[in-house]
Design a protein around this nucleic acid. Sequence first.
DNA 1: GATGAATGAGACTTCATTCAT
DNA 2: TATGAATGAAGTCTCATTCAT
Lengths: 207, 207, 207, 207
Amino acid sequence: MSSRPSREERAELKRERILEEALTVFAEKGYHGANIADIARRLEMGHGTFYRYFENKHDIFIELINRVLQKLAVVMTEQNPNEANSREDYRRQLEGIGETFMRLHWEDPRIGRLVFYEAMGAGAEVRQTLERMNDLSVLATQEYLRNGMAKGYMRADLDVPVTARALMAMVFEGCRQVMREPDQNPEQASRRWIAAVMAIILDGITL
Amino acid sequence: MSSRPSREERAELKRERILEEALTVFAEKGYHGANIADIARRLEMGHGTFYRYFENKHDIFIELINRVLQKLAVVMTEQNPNEANSREDYRRQLEGIGETFMRLHWEDPRIGRLVFYEAMGAGAEVRQTLERMNDLSVLATQEYLRNGMAKGYMRADLDVPVTARALMAMVFEGCRQVMREPDQNPEQASRRWIAAVMAIILDGITL
Amino acid sequence: MSSRPSREERAELKRERILEEALTVFAEKGYHGANIADIARRLEMGHGTFYRYFENKHDIFIELINRVLQKLAVVMTEQNPNEANSREDYRRQLEGIGETFMRLHWEDPRIGRLVFYEAMGAGAEVRQTLERMNDLSVLATQEYLRNGMAKGYMRADLDVPVTARALMAMVFEGCRQVMREPDQNPEQASRRWIAAVMAIILDGITL
Amino acid sequence: MSSRPSREERAELKRERILEEALTVFAEKGYHGANIADIARRLEMGHGTFYRYFENKHDIFIELINRVLQKLAVVMTEQNPNEANSREDYRRQLEGIGETFMRLHWEDPRIGRLVFYEAMGAGAEVRQTLERMNDLSVLATQEYLRNGMAKGYMRADLDVPVTARALMAMVFEGCRQVMREPDQNPEQASRRWIAAVMAIILDGITL
DNA sequence: GATGAATGAGACTTCATTCAT
DNA sequence: TATGAATGAAGTCTCATTCAT
């Protein structure tokens, strides 16, 4: 069945291997701390080879960031914002989104390290990419809010754009915390976060 | 009246000038993008002079971060967490904290750039300092929550540590947003953020 | 016959070229006076290249010193201290040692410049290495003395350790002098030194 | 009696204090390792002041070397080379010279450190000064030898210049050793050295 | 005379990137 | 296609020396 991979396929495979290792190294040492020779050495590959697959250091970092953000974006679009017809439906949606988001981070903490920490020091372009992703997730959140308002289970006077950003901030902070401590049980920590944030969102914290 | 400043005073003044300029440059270019010669040139001084006032690049960055965090810390401790006796008292406290926090950032957007962006890529030590500061603000927030629960105007079943982190995440995100766009009216933007976040905290967003 | 050298061989060759040139430069200007860019320029190579072959400036200097000392050490061990059975045997041994030692220095005066002059100002570590080498040669000399005392052709009341040091001091001073003036006929100068020192050792200078 | 010192006297005093401290620091850290600010700080004096008393770093080092060498030179000229009329007279002279020389070094080990070690790495000019001093002491030694030959208590066939250098080499090595180890009893060590070297010179080491 | 702030030449070292093999 | 030797720009930091106060 599986024939010998073609030239293009092998190239693609190698590219993937490089990206994979680069993710590890960048997450560990940050953009400036990492160096190409290092990544190449860990792959037992000449560091000149690197430049056959990527334009330069900046290039691979950007691609890495884009891939990571892509993964995050997928989560946001898995659910349909207009599906929920009640507070209860919405609660279930939130739970789903939260879980998938969190799982992403404790399954591969490199993602969080890259996004929350190391990408910040890698220059304006990277940061803008990040911001764009953030904006995207906020847009999705706005949909959820607008749907809730339309369906009547959310307050009609919400400041949608700002509220959406605030909610996403809590979600991302949750991810950061869950990723941060590798000792604790990440599944349990995730559940605590999801519960607490949903309580804030759905119930408010005051009586 | 104002006599000529003494030697120590002039040294202190110069140190301040360097810190001031360094803040600008670091906020603009980040830790790695900035270089000492650059900072010195903008101050029209030899770059050797820099090393009369600071041990090295890392040293001044740390000092800058500490000063900035100090400013933020002051805001948190201005209010007494146990003062509020009702939902209304708490609302007023929140409003005060939020305003002061926000004002800090739109009065000097470099602070936010440093804390939210550039410090992240400056290595583990800096990041830990930041995290420590975050923890501190979270501890203060926990006090507010515990007070509210004790006084009976907050739900008794809050997950205090996690909730505190989530709330602070919204506050910091607000600061980030207010700082981000220098075009918009920052005062108005601040008010919107404070209102929206307070609505989430106090009322929840669902009916 | 001589095939093209392999990569390792070429690397080794280049390393040798660098060491060779560095020896010249260090001997000329001393440790502090020499600089890497200088050495690299004389080899018509980028100074970054240097760091592919040596850790740093200190590193290559140490290696140079060790190589030079190795050469000197070999001379001391070429003869067997216990071989001489008479004053005449010992005279022949002394002559052999002296000649080889001297030859080393007038064949390559850089060795002496490094050992006698420049290494002294290169810090404690280098100096200790030198001292260790000196100690070694003194130990060997002690063997010669002890053998002579045992065989009965040397005074029985010699202060062996001190006498050994004193003798080596004359040998080294001879090397220094022979190396110092490149104009004079070094072979003849060597012979004069060997003769004079042997006269002191074997006969004393007084009647 | 002792009136307040005049301006010139105070200047001279300060100059001496600087020289004294500089000797300590140079002996400790070597020419390149020492720095002017350091010396000034230890004298609780502005380092700009240094340049009122000395042209530059090189200048003071040269002066230091000259003073130290002067001290050594005095020892050589204390005795009259032509005074000794017999082997016994010469023995007493040698003993005197040896003792004074050694005492110099264990009374102030900085002298030896400077002359034997640190001066070597301080450039050609300093080295030439040293060599000149060495030559001087060798000239004096030659006088002793020539006197001995004239008076008939020394062999007539000595190679005077070379023998003189060889003898001085032993003397200097003795100083170096006595200075090197501050733990041992320097007086006793001195005596051992003097005895051993005199034995070599006067008796030879072979039977 | 004394000071020490300012200077900048100069040294070391790193590492992204190129290119001949 | 893969390699890794070579490169040099760039950056950090030191310290002898000058000079205004």
